[in-house]
Nucleic acid binder design. Structure first.
Length: 120
DNA sequence: ATTCTCACA
DNA sequence: TGTGAGTA
């Protein structure tokens, strides 16, 4: 199976560097998106460094897909995600984008993504 | 080495 | 978005 192997614990927290490697995005892009999408608020550790949760990485992948693959503008992506939030469902393309990313461990259910979207 | 904020192109 | 400066 590709998910949940009991013997090998799944990583829970990620540094911005790890997220960048996983999403193929640059740190400054991630920080910029934070200023554009309210739902992208990684926690900060004691020293002020960003600590990402898997769900946030999924959201980042979704934003990346909307922006780069579907070529939405920042505003367009915001509206689209707001739309997902209301309808409670993702379009097949976006869904595929999340499942296609070769990072098996990041493949959580879309419910978790939609959950984070609540109150954005 | 890595990440952070801020400034600026 | 990209890059550099000066930090922590």
């Amino acid at each position: 199976m590709s998910s949940g192997t009991p013997s090998q614990p799944v990583q829970e927290f990620f540094s911005i560097g790890e997220v960048c490697q996983l999403t193929d995005l640059k740190p400054h892009v991630l920080r910029y998106w934070e200023s554009q999408f309210r739902f992208l608020n990684p926690a900060k550790n004691r020293s002020g460094n960003r600590v990402y949760q898997r769900r946030e990485i999924e959201l980042i992948m979704l934003v990346k897909h909307l922006l780069y693959t579907e070529k939405y503008t920042i505003e367009g992506a915001r509206q689209k995600i707001e739309q997902y939030r209301r309808s409670g469902e993702l379009k097949p393309e976006a869904r595929r984008a999340l499942a296609t990313e070769t990072v098996k461990e990041l493949r959580a259910e879309l419910k978790s993504v939609l959950g984070i979207l609540e109150g954005s």
